[in-house]
Simulated scan of single mutants.
Amino acid sequence: MAKVKIGIIGAGGIANNHAHYYRQITDVELVAVADIVEERAVSFAQRWGIPPEGVFTDYIKMLDSVELDAVSVCTPHAVHAKPTIEALKRGVHALVEKPMASSGAEALEMLRAAKASGKILMVGFQTRWSPELGAARKIVASGALGRIYYAEATLGGRRRGIPGSPTFVKRELAGGGVLLDLGCYAIDNLMFVLGHPRPLTISATVEAAIGKQREAVVEGGWPWNPEEFEVEDFVAAFIRFEGGLTMVLKESWAMHADALGSSFILGTKGGLRLSPLEVYRDEWGYMTNTTLKLPQVDIYRERIRSFVEAVKRGGPSPIDPREIVVEMFIIDAIYESARKGREVEVKLPSEVLG
Results as ranks from 00 to 15, higher is better:
residue 100 M to T: 00
residue 333 A to S: 15
residue 322 R to K: 15
residue 129 W to N: 03
residue 229 F to D: 00
residue 101 A to T: 01
residue 82 K to Y: 02
residue 170 K to Q: 15
residue 165 S to P: 00
residue 327 E to T: 03
residue 51 P to V: 05
residue 29 E to A: 15
residue 271 G to P: 02
residue 74 C to T: 10
residue 198 R to C: 13
residue 281 R to A: 14
residue 246 T to C: 04
residue 73 V to W: 01
residue 340 K to Q: 15
residue 64 D to R: 07
residue 216 A to E: 08
residue 113 A to S: 08
residue 64 D to P: 12
residue 15 A to N: 04
residue 160 R to F: 10
residue 210 I to R: 13
residue 158 R to W: 13
residue 106 E to V: 01
residue 61 K to H: 12
residue 198 R to I: 11
residue 348 L to Y: 08
residue 31 V to R: 01
residue 167 T to P: 02
residue 180 L to H: 09
residue 199 P to H: 08
residue 305 R to P: 00
residue 18 H to R: 08
residue 197 P to F: 11
residue 346 V to H: 02
residue 62 M to C: 11
residue 247 M to H: 10
residue 119 K to G: 02
residue 293 K to P: 01
residue 292 L to T: 10
residue 333 A to T: 02
residue 65 S to C: 08
residue 265 I to E: 06
residue 107 A to W: 01
residue 67 E to Y: 02
residue 85 I to L: 04
residue 61 K to R: 15
residue 167 T to L: 11
residue 175 G to P: 10
residue 88 L to S: 04
residue 280 Y to P: 07
residue 141 A to H: 03
residue 314 G to Y: 06
residue 100 M to E: 01
residue 3 K to A: 15
residue 1 M to W: 00
residue 317 S to I: 03
residue 210 I to S: 02
residue 270 G to R: 06
residue 283 E to M: 14
residue 87 A to Q: 05
residue 314 G to Q: 07
residue 71 V to S: 04
residue 197 P to M: 09
residue 62 M to I: 05
residue 37 V to M: 12
residue 229 F to H: 07
residue 237 A to N: 09
residue 22 Y to C: 14
residue 144 A to E: 15
residue 42 V to Q: 10
residue 22 Y to G: 00
residue 159 R to V: 15
residue 75 T to M: 11
residue 281 R to D: 04
residue 72 S to C: 12
residue 138 K to H: 08
residue 56 F to H: 04
residue 228 E to C: 01
residue 96 V to L: 00
residue 336 E to F: 03
residue 290 T to P: 00
residue 19 A to H: 00
residue 191 M to I: 06
residue 292 L to E: 09
residue 347 K to S: 13
residue 73 V to F: 01
residue 258 D to W: 09
residue 189 N to P: 05
residue 350 S to W: 01
residue 250 K to N: 10
residue 49 G to A: 11
